Amino acid sequence: MFVALEPRRLYRQVAEQLRALIETGELPTGERLPAERELAERLGVSRPTVREALIVLEVEGLIQIRMGSGVYVSRKPPTKAVLPADDSDGPFELLQARCLIESAIAEEAARIARPEHIAALDALLAEMAVTLEDSHQALSIDRAFHTAIADIIGNSALNRFTGLIYDRRLSPYFEKLASYFEGPHTWQMALEEHTAIRDAIAAGDPEAARHAMREHLTRSQKRFSESFGEEPVRED
Rank of each mutant, 00 (worst) to 15 (best):
A15T: 09
Q17N: 03
Q17D: 09
Q17E: 14
Q17W: 03
Q17P: 09
L18G: 07
L18A: 08
R19P: 00
R19Q: 08
A20F: 04
A20K: 14
A20E: 14
A20N: 11
L21C: 02
L21H: 06
I22F: 05
E23K: 14
E23I: 02
E23D: 11
T24M: 03
T24F: 02
T24D: 11
G25T: 01
G25K: 03
G25I: 01
G25L: 02
E26W: 13
E26H: 14
E26T: 15
L27K: 12
L27H: 09
P28Q: 10
P28V: 09
T29I: 13
T29Q: 05
G30M: 13
G30R: 05
G30E: 07
G30P: 10
E31K: 09
E31Y: 03
R32P: 03
R32F: 09
R32V: 11
L33Q: 11
L33H: 12
L33G: 09
L33D: 07
L33A: 10
P34M: 14
P34K: 12
P34R: 14
A35C: 04
A35M: 06
E36A: 02
E36L: 12
E36P: 05
E36G: 10
R37V: 07
R37A: 09
E38Y: 10
E38M: 11
E38L: 13
L39N: 08
L39P: 08
L39C: 12
L39I: 10
A40F: 03
A40I: 05
A40C: 07
A40R: 04
A40S: 14
L43E: 00
L43C: 02
G44D: 11
G44M: 04
V45D: 02
V45N: 04
V45C: 08
S46D: 09
S46I: 00
R47E: 13
R47K: 12
R47I: 15
R47H: 00
P48K: 08
P48G: 06
P48E: 04
P48Q: 07
T49Q: 15
V50E: 06
R51D: 01
R51H: 02
R51A: 05
R51K: 15
